[in-house]
């Protein structure tokens, strides 16, 4: 009898109590707490994730110049920083800059869901382990923290897009899509979780995504 732990929220699936071996659960089974896919679970006692590769194979590109898309993110982040310091005017000014750069972001030619999912998976397989490895080497716990959160949120996006590909509109009919406004965790359900499984903020920090008006 084994216990399986959800890598997103920490929910424990105890085979002894549940009666069904974890391996016997259908592939469509999801975490009852945060709806993470079966693949996000690992047996208790096993390392939460494989060790980050010591040296990333790919050389780091030189990205001195930030693109318009990245500049928009830098500015919207600084706007949030101003909000936290109760600097409303400054926050509005940074948002104005963020909007300018968002409007000037080059469109992606022929966007398709498969390309998006490929990019998300590459982050999970290569970029997060590489960044996390660099952060460990530099004893940078702040960056390790964003790797922990970002990886969980990204794994959830991969799982939701995969589910949509398999189940289509049925998956989202008569239910809601929620985004944690702090860490970006996406949750599908009638009501948001009581606390965010990733960053632990309360339910009111979740935003409901409305359909087209």
């Amino acid at each position: 009898m084994e216990r399986w732990i959800c890598g997103i929220c920490g929910y424990v699936y105890d085979e002894g109590k549940e009666g069904t071996p974890f391996a016997a659960l259908p592939d469509s089974w999801v975490c009852p707490l945060c709806s993470a896919p079966k693949s996000a679970f690992s047996p208790a006692g096993a390392p939460a994730q494989p060790d980050a590769p010591a040296a990333p194979a790919k050389p780091v590109e030189d990205l001195k110049e930030l693109s318009a898309g990245e500049l928009s993110v830098v500015c919207s982040n600084l706007a949030r920083g101003c909000e936290k310091q109760y600097k409303d005017r400054e926050a509005a000014l940074f948002r104005e800059l963020a909007d300018f750069f968002a409007a000037g972001t080059a469109p992606v030619s022929d966007p398709d869901p498969e390309g998006l999912m490929d990019r998300i998976r590459r982050d999970l397989e290569e970029e997060y382990p590489a960044l996390s490895g660099a952060a460990v080497a530099a004893s940078d716990r702040g960056t390790q923290r964003i790797c922990v959160w970002g990886e969980k949120v990204t794994r959830m996006l991969d799982s939701l897009l995969t589910r949509y590909r398999t189940e289509g509109e049925d998956f989202l009919q008569n239910t809601q899509v929620w985004v944690c406004t702090v860490c970006g965790f996406v949750y599908v359900g009638d009501a948001p979780p009581e606390i965010c499984p990733v960053c632990k903020v309360p339910a009111w920090k979740f935003e409901k995504i409305e359909g087209r008006v």
Binding site: E70, V73, V74, S76, N77, L78, R80, G81, C82, Q85, K87, E90, F94, L116, D140, G142, T143, R145, I146, W149, G150, V153, T154, L157, L160, L161, Y164, E169, F171, L172, Q173, V177, W178, V179, C180, T181, V182, C183, G184, F185, V186, E207, I209, E210, G211, R212
Partner: peptide
């Protein structure tokens, strides 16, 4: 449903990226 899911993905990725760039030197205004 797809519209709502992709809107959520757009917002989610932005939040994750804000966090990332905050840790990469843009924490304090």
């Amino acid at each position: 449903g797809l519209y709502r899911l992709l809107t959520a993905v757009t917002k989610s990725v932005r939040l994750v990226n804000e966090d990332l760039l905050r840790e990469a030197g843009y924490m304090l205004p």
